[in-house]
Design a protein around this nucleic acid. Structure first.
Lengths: 167, 167
DNA sequence: TATTGTTATACTCTATAACTATA
DNA sequence: TATAGTTATAGAGTATAACAATA
């Protein structure tokens, strides 16, 4: 969909190093910009992979946590996914209406709901993970297993650092 | 060494308010999920850094390209930032209204506008880059210069690969 | 008082289709 | 016809404030 053609600068390109990148060469030195570009590509593709399964990225993420953590509450879910509690409501609604999870009352604390995946939810999640792994293997085909592990490790350290700063 | 345990306690005995630790453990093996978490942290902080300068991430990015590429057209700008042409319009409007850039008619092709940064735009861009670099130095303080370069390099390869796949 | 889930709201980013004026 | 800029619109993610029920 996106035209691949390289926009030709009107300004005479006398810079020999301008070849590898485009007009955004200066921006690419910012880690955040490069991260956002790569993330957008990954996210768009992941969304396309999940769509036939009736999931979005957010609903898949929530379903995954619920599958792995039976009787998790919505507050715990929100915290684990680094999102606001209020934004989990519609996500939980969608998963419940799709029959993939259930809300159950907690006897010891009637404010909370205990979220539990249904059998259909567990199966849907397994299929989604398989599809996403295949998608990532394709998207990251240029990276060796070691490079991929390095990337994930570095990103996790940024995440950890960011979490600490918030406090 | 802790052996494999049962998935996280459903109802934490003491600290139910503490961030549930590792409920998203399975998700973290997906590169896209880890990338998105780290990117969200970086983006949120970058937005806070740019806000006092009257810029958003998108307007800053556009301003940066325009500063580096005098008389760039909106189509070229959109292509370089990997965004739709239609979405550049409001961004350009905001920059123009702020007096940071100017739209100029192209005599040879009256469909196009040539975008040029004003002196104020050039200065604003310089201040924004300095602020963002300081922000990134703080956010990425745990990474050595080599690790940071490695991260950027790996992300660029994902970006390049993704661009090719789209066509 | 504090917390859980909820509602309402708003802003940003992104994507698509269709229009205009030029080429 | 094809392209550049534009308009309108819609979807999704994210963020904040406030409320009722419950602790």
């Amino acid at each position: 969909m996106i035209s691949k053609q390289n926009p030709v600068p009107q300004v005479p390109s006398d810079d020999s190093t301008a070849a590898p990148f485009g007009l955004d060469r200066a921006l690419r030195d910012l880690v955040g910009y490069t991260m956002k570009r790569a993330t957008n590509l990954m996210q768009a593709d992941a969304a396309r992979v999940l769509e036939p399964l009736g999931l979005r990225i957010t609903t898949f993420s929530a379903l995954s946590v619920i599958c792995d953590t039976p009787d998790v509450t919505q507050s715990q879910l929100a915290a684990s996914l680094n999102m606001e509690r209020s934004n989990t409501v519609l996500i939980i609604d969608a998963l419940e209406e799709a029959g993939l999870i259930g809300r159950h009352r907690v006897l010891t604390d009637r404010r909370s709901f205990a979220l539990r995946a249904t059998l259909a939810g567990t199966r849907r999640r397994r299929a989604a993970v398989a599809a996403l792994q295949a998608h990532e293997n394709a998207m990251l085909a240029d990276l060796s297993p070691e490079e991929r592990a390095t990337l994930v490790g570095l990103l996790r350290r940024i995440d950890r650092r960011g979490q600490e700063d918030v406090q």
